[in-house]
């Protein structure tokens, strides 16, 4: 890794070359990096940004860390992602689209891409495939969860990569962080919430704003889905709402696909 004379607390730091890439997505997770007004400059002293099309014209094929946002929906994206993988020492999936397919994977529930295509483009169909997450195509080293990602978490992951510290994710669910934040429980307000089963690390971002969790970070370790369903049913939350939440971002795909089949008897 090149050392360009930058120091941290007086100690010279290796600044890895970081590259940002986007596939099918809203590019919001990359924007979160630029939304780091208070710490953006510190962040930029930690890494050397060599590719960031949304923000810069210069580009390079030489990089250490590739941050990849978005899901994979077309053959040319598969080729581009493989090329990025072959060049990057570390490949980081940035956000729910990259980690799980994100809201984009909701189109997979129709199982009929011709219908999907016709609905939007009429007879002028365009090339598209079922939505895949990055890990379905290449090996992914690290995940940064969330829709959107939290900028603090991006910084933490980058710092850990730079100093060679192992990356660990919370094993407990959002509910823990929500309780610690002394928020009103969304269940007490009659709202649906996936807080009991979703991986923590967001600081209970949505429940803290009195909006139920939609599970954008995927399941916590040992998430007890059946118990969560029972809790929601006891509170009169409709089955359809539970399904809407579970399938929204793709993190609970295995559970939600079965649940949808049971509920709709195969109808989309």
């Amino acid at each position: 890794m090149p050392n360009s004379g930058k120091t941290y607390l007086g100690v010279p730091v290796s600044r890895p070359r970081a590259a940002f890439f986007d596939f099918s997505s809203c590019e919001g997770c990359q924007l979160q990096i630029l939304n780091n007004e208070a710490t953006l400059l510190d962040f930029l002293s930690l890494v050397q940004v060599v590719n960031f099309r949304e923000a810069m014209t210069e580009e390079s094929d030489e990089y250490d860390i590739a941050f990849v946002e978005g899901s994979i929906t077309r053959p040319d994206e598969v080729e581009r992602l493989k090329a990025i993988r072959s060049r990057a020492k570390v490949l980081v999936a940035l956000g729910s689209c990259a980690c799980f397919g994100g809201v984009n994977q909701l189109k997979n529930r129709f199982r009929d891409l011709l219908w999907v295509n016709k609905t939007v483009y009429g007879d002028a169909a365009v090339e598209t495939d079922f939505v895949r997450r990055l890990a379905d195509v290449v090996a992914v080293d690290l995940m940064i969860y969330g829709c959107p990602v939290r900028k603090e978490e991006v910084e933490k992951v980058v710092t850990n990569v730079v100093i060679g510290k192992e990356i660990s994710y919370p094993k407990y669910p959002v509910c823990m962080e929500c309780k610690a934040g002394e928020n009103i429980c969304l269940f007490d307000l009659g709202e649906a919430c996936l807080g009991p089963v979703t991986r923590a690390g967001c600081g209970a971002w949505c429940p803290g704003n009195r909006a139920g969790c939609w599970g954008c970070r995927g399941p916590a370790d040992d998430a007890n889905i059946e118990q969560m369903k029972r809790l929601m049913r006891e509170r009169g939350i409709p089955e359809e709402t539970i399904l809407d939440r579970l399938e929204c971002f793709g993190g609970f795909r295995e559970v939600s696909e079965t649940f949808r089949l049971e509920m709709t008897k195969g109808k989309p």
């Binding site: 909701l106 189109k107 939007v120």
Partner: peptide, 10 residues
Amino acid sequence: TPRFFEAILS
């Protein structure tokens, strides 16, 4: 690449 939001919302 299109994401087909109009279909997704259906």
